[in-house]
Amino acid sequence: MALSETEKRRLSGVDIQTRKKGVLVRPDLCIGCRGCQTACKEWNKLPGDRTVNRGTYENPPDLTPNLYNKIRFVEVEEGGHLRWLFISQRCMHCTEAGCMKVCPAPGALYRTPEGAVAFNKKKCIGCRFCLAGCPFNIPRYDAEEKISKCHLCADRLAFGLEPACTKTCPTGALTFGDRDELIQMAKASGFEAVYGEKDLGGLGVLYAFKEFPSFYGLPDSPGLPASVAFWKSILKPLALIGLGGAVAAAAAHYITVGPKEPEEGGEE
């Protein structure tokens, strides 16, 4: 994908913090109507999944290749009362996106000018590494083993439209906007901390929580998986350094100590 100068600037480290688009999720305002879940399916032309009644309105039980955005139902009993809470679960559009770091097929996952992490099924080779790289268990794979996940409606954003989910949300539980403005908005509404403000270089999907993130099934302090972080900083560079070092050591040995020449008179 060829980027214009403005787009490149937008995507450069500094700008991405201030210009990146995002979604603010406020679980306290969510009424569990699942309008966003349906709007997402409509816009992305995703077929329904066949499921069974599990005794909850939460359906399907998890993200699928045909379900990019799902309302997770949190049903807990506290002091004899049932608490019934809802949260939108989808790709976070991380600035430090683990999925993009491990993807071996350049262009299969790409950053849109708005800072979303979108995908191109034609370039995806179906290796499933992005699931290993993702801290939030988001990527799913379709029947052809190609990546499927929320792309923040990259096709709508390109035409200046907001994502289908935020467009539909009737209560303000989902708000689309400039990421920095969303953070200010949440703070102005009395939230001290915004989940995703700093995590993983800044998440595109921000959460204003009244509970611990783990209450909603999210990691309390999200970060790259340890194995992926170690791989990225040590193992990956070491492969080329190791190869180069071995070739250099062999060459150095050859021109200093030299080969084990045959003994005088001995022919080899």
């Binding site: 491990v102 499933r128 590494f129 699931l131 290993a132 993702c134 268990n137 998986p225 194995s227 992926v228 170690f230 791989w231 193992l235």
Partner: peptide, 9 residues
């Protein structure tokens, strides 16, 4: 995810 991370590493 677990097996993929283990294998990848």
């Amino acid at each position: 995810t677990g097996w993929l991370r283990f294998g990848h590493f």
